[in-house]
Design a protein around this nucleic acid. Structure first.
Lengths: 130, 130
DNA sequence: GATAAGGGTTCCAGTCACTGGAAGGTCAAG
DNA sequence: CTTGACCTTCCAGTGACTGGAACCCTTATC
């Protein structure tokens, strides 16, 4: 299978698939003409990667998850640890963003948003504590 | 004032302050010896920038906010628009992360996390719909 | 006067995960 | 034979820094 078909099937840009080969996540074969020749297993890996990336796992975490996926003797505890760590990061990020949203939301509600210069948003940025 | 003192007062790394000069956000003077010479106005700008960055505004948004801050004839509507747009992005990001958290949280709760290979997390990554 | 510590300076490279684009090879259809 | 859609590699750019090398300036101490 050529890269275009794989891209469609895996829902990833061809560029991204080439990049994943570059960094050693996949190892497609090559046809005589130099084209990448993907097997079903490669497509499955790419779907896996796309899904893991969509859940926000870093490339390194994806690499680890892929290795575990291919390891019949894995302990699910190892997978769970990666997922739990990542979940904690997501939750921290959500908390950060919620703080931003709350602060910014309050400021936006206080701002008249008219043609006058007076602006609580700028005031707060200049002197957050007052 | 030298960069070290400014860094302390503004709560930004000296490297970041140099970078902000590089990209034209600030224009400190120079001493005879080549050292940057910061005025109070520079420090205020840097505090402003640090605060705006902490609220997640991009550098370009910071640049626009800074320009509005310095413009006595600004309309608060312009500030409000930037903030509202950014708020929408934050909310979208929060929604994305919450989806990730929900999906991942469910999977983590289903995973035994023991020394056996069976793992709902990997299963879901391989075939999300089943 | 030499030296060391603790500032400061510039410039280059690396981060992360792609993405865009140039320049060129391959293949099937008309 | 040409057109167009594929494919290839390689290089550069993204955002917002961050690390490090190599070097200069100032002050204090021996």
């Amino acid at each position: 299978m050529n890269i275009g078909d794989v891209a469609t099937r895996a829902g990833l840009p061809a560029k991204t698939i080439r990049y994943y080969e570059d960094i050693g996540l996949i190892r497609p074969l090559r046809d005589q003409n130099g084209y990448r020749a993907f097997r079903e297993a490669d497509v499955h890996k790419l779907v896996f990667l796309g899904r893991a990336r969509a859940l926000g796992f870093s490339i390194d975490e994806c690499r680890a998850l892929l290795a575990l996926w291919e390891d019949r003797d894995r302990a699910s505890a190892d997978v769970r640890r990666i997922a739990t760590d990542h979940l904690a990061q997501i939750e921290a990020k959500i908390a950060d963003l919620q703080d931003m949203r709350d602060t910014l939301g309050t400021l936006v509600r206080k701002c008249a948003g008219d043609d006058r210069p007076d602006c609580p948003i700028l005031k707060s940025l200049a002197a957050p504590d007052q």
